[in-house]
Design a binder for these strands. Structure first.
Length: 111
DNA sequence: CTTTTGACTGAGT
DNA sequence: AACTCAGCCAAAA
């Protein structure tokens, strides 16, 4: 099964407030652990209309992606802080505390 | 239609 | 420890 952009969007929307997920994690739960690039690419191509909290999706270092959305990474940092995510320096979050860790990836997670 | 690229990650050198 | 290589798949050129 290949994952569609829609599937990625659905997944990202399921990330609880105050938590963050990594691209590899999302890619893995969608069936392709090496397709992290896709997740990033799809989120990039995802319109803001989709209401996808892309700010909760970070790279494996816990940092926001390079260009991010309109307004710059600073805006996303602010959004996450508003959700309760504590940032460290340089737009990075503490993954040991804020990484989204669903107990299991099943239909309840995959819609 | 083919080719390139891209908000990444893991393994190899 | 740092750098390089390969791979995953979708959208844009």
């Amino acid at each position: 099964m290949t994952f569609n952009a829609k599937q990625v969007r659905e997944m990202v929307k399921k990330i609880p407030p105050g938590k963050v997920a990594t691209y590899g994690q999302i890619a893995g739960m969608l069936g392709s652990p090496r397709a992290a690039q896709l997740v990033g690419w799809i989120l990039h191509s995802t319109p803001e209309n989709a209401k996808v909290p892309a700010q909760r999706v970070v790279n494996r270092f816990g940092g926001l992606a390079a260009g991010y959305t309109f307004g710059g990474p600073m805006r996303q940092k602010c959004e996450l802080e508003n959700e309760g995510v504590e940032f460290k320096s340089s737009n990075t979050v503490d993954l040991t505390k804020y990484l989204w860790q669903p107990k299991r990836f099943n239909d309840d997670q995959l819609s």
